[in-house]
Design a protein around this nucleic acid. Sequence first.
DNA 1: CTTGACCCCGTACCATACTACAGGGTTTAC
DNA 2: GTAAACCCTGTAGTATGGTACGGGGTCAAG
Lengths: 138, 138
Amino acid sequence: MELVGLTAGKLAKAAEVNVETLRYYERRGLLPEPPRKASGYRVYPESAVDRLKFIKGAQVLGFTLEEIQELLEMRLDTKTNRADVRQRATKKVATIQEKIDALEQMKQALEHLVHQCHGSGSSAECPILEAIPTFSGT
Amino acid sequence: MELVGLTAGKLAKAAEVNVETLRYYERRGLLPEPPRKASGYRVYPESAVDRLKFIKGAQVLGFTLEEIQELLEMRLDTKTNRADVRQRATKKVATIQEKIDALEQMKQALEHLVHQCHGSGSSAECPILEAIPTFSGT
DNA sequence: CTTGACCCCGTACCATACTACAGGGTTTAC
DNA sequence: GTAAACCCTGTAGTATGGTACGGGGTCAAG
C-alpha cells in the first residue's frame, strides 16, 4: 500500500542522514513521532526532510541538539504567548550575531595573513595567527 | 622560587578552563609543552591564556579541536612553505565565510519571524516559527 | 509463495571532548 | 616543620551525538 509520505529509508536518504539517526532524534524529541502504518512502519511527511536539514545545518554552526530543540519547539508550544516566543527568538538572534562577529574577526585575521604572506622568497617570519587569539573575549 | 610565568592552576583560572583540560590539550598537541621547573611543574607563558581563549572561542563557533589545531599551526615561519600556508588559509577563509552565510540566513529568518509576530495571542497563530524548518533548505 | 530489501525494537558500542580519581611528590604559609 | 594547597602521572569515567547489531516481522517482485 502506497499512501503519501516517506518511509524511514527514503527520508534518511533524502536528508542525508543515517536511518538510525532518525530514531535517535525521535527519542530525543527533535523529530516528532510520525504516524505509523498498520505494520508499525513510520510514515514521515515530506516536511521532515527540511526539518532534518535544518537540524544538520544548525549543528554545523555550533548549536547543540538541545538548543536546536528549543528553536524547534518554540512554535509548537501553544501555551507560550507571542511575547515569550519573540523574546526567545530575539535572544537567539543576539547569540547568532555574536557568532557572526567572531567569525568575521577570524576571517579578517586569516585574510590579513594571506596578504602578508604572498611573497615566496625571503626570510622573516610571517606573522600569521598572532591576531586571531585575541578575538575570543566575547 | 618565583620566576615569570603561570602555574597550571593560575592558567586554568585565568582562561576559565579545568586544570585537567590543560593536560588534555597538551596531549592533543593544542597547547605546546611548556618548560618545567626542576620539580617537574609546568611553567606557562602569559600568552597561553590567549591561546586557550582562542580555542574556547573557536569551539563555540563550531570548529573541532582538530580544525582549531590546524588554524593554530598555520603560522608560517621560515620552515614552512608560504604558498602552502596561503592556500590552506584561503581555504579556511572560505569555510568561515560559509558559516557566516548560514548564520546570516538563520538570523534573517528569525528576525523576520520576530517582526511578523507582534501580537499578543498564543504562539500557535504566530507565523514565526512555521518558517524555521524550511529556511535551512538552502 | 518465497526471497531480498526494508522496517521494527532494544541494546551495545564508538568518537570527541572533557573531567575525575588515586597515589604520590612539592610549595607555601603559619 | 608541618599541614593545606598545589602539582605530577596514569587511567578511568562522563556527556553528547550518533552508529551498529541481533533477532525478528513486512512487502513487492518474480
